[in-house]
């Protein structure tokens, strides 16, 4: 029983957990959410631009998107975060007068997310039948308006599950900004759990941090499954037989 008790104390020391819980929720949670949401929003905007460049008729734009995607998809997230966070910090200090590495963390996460999200958007947009663009253009819409009103909304809808998966990955990767050395008030869930573990010599704060991540990510995972299902089967709606058998409309009277 000694070993079991020891294991229980290592992972589930309620006292150690309770001690770290307030700062996990009051400091770590908001910071993680700010990091994840702001880089998700910015990454989606940049990703959409990359997707549109990737399918552009302009070869230069296609190349820029291609090279960008290759680089930021091909590098480990932690390397990008360190290189941007440390490399650009003198520049950021000069421009803003602040030593806060937080914006650079968001920037690094955004750049990485954009590469993945761009590929997700591109595959979605390219899966929309050619006839949609053609029909929109035949009505008199320009290429840009057709993309904005008809093609892109359909493309994005199709890749919502993949997009939410990417958001989940981003939420988890946001923990890597701890490498940049954040001030106490800027620390996110992982860093707070990690610090508390180091201070107390007990693993339980890290387990508590893990549980908090799961509380965030598991509902998102199920949300993905839900929209995936909805997209596959559609809203249940009654299909009616064609009324053409009965004379309806002037067309049928001829």
């Amino acid at each position: 029983m000694d070993t079991l008790e020891q294991l229980a104390d290592t992972f589930f020391n309620w006292g150690a957990m309770a001690e770290v819980l307030p700062s996990l929720i009051m400091v770590g949670l908001p910071n993680t959410i700010i990091l994840a949401v702001s880089s998700a929003v910015l990454g989606s905007v940049l990703g959409l631009a990359l997707a549109l460049m990737g399918i552009s008729r302009n070869a230069g734009a296609r190349w820029v998107a291609r090279i960008y995607t290759d680089i930021f998809r091909g590098l480990p997230a932690i390397l990008v975060i360190l290189v941007i966070g440390i490399g650009l910090s003198p520049l950021a200090r000069e421009l803003t007068g602040s030593r806060n590495p937080y914006p650079l963390g968001v920037l690094a996460l955004t750049l990485i997310a954009a590469a993945y999200i761009g590929e997700i958007f591109r595959s979605g947009i390219q899966s929309v039948e050619k006839g949609q663009l053609e029909a929109s253009r035949a009505l008199g819409f320009s290429y840009g308006s057709s993309m904005r009103l008809v093609v892109v909304p359909q493309g994005i809808r199709r890749v919502l599950p993949a997009l939410v998966n990417q958001f989940i990955a981003l939420l988890k990767d946001s923990s890597l900004v701890f490498m940049l050395g954040l001030a106490a008030s800027e620390r996110e869930i992982f860093r707070i759990g990690n610090d508390a573990m180091a201070n107390s010599g007990n693993l339980s704060p890290l387990v508590a941090a893990g549980l908090l991540y799961l509380i965030l990510t598991v509902p998102l995972t199920h949300f993905v499954n839900f929209i995936d299902n909805r997209l596959r089967t559609g809203r249940p709606e009654k299909k009616e037989p064609d009324e053409l058998a009965a004379p309806i409309g002037k067309g049928a009277q001829a």
Partner: peptide, 12 residues
């Protein structure tokens, strides 16, 4: 105006 073989209505 143009009408297509595959209708091409906007499904969304």
């Amino acid at each position: 105006g143009m009408v297509f073989q595959q209708f091409n209505l906007f499904p969304h």
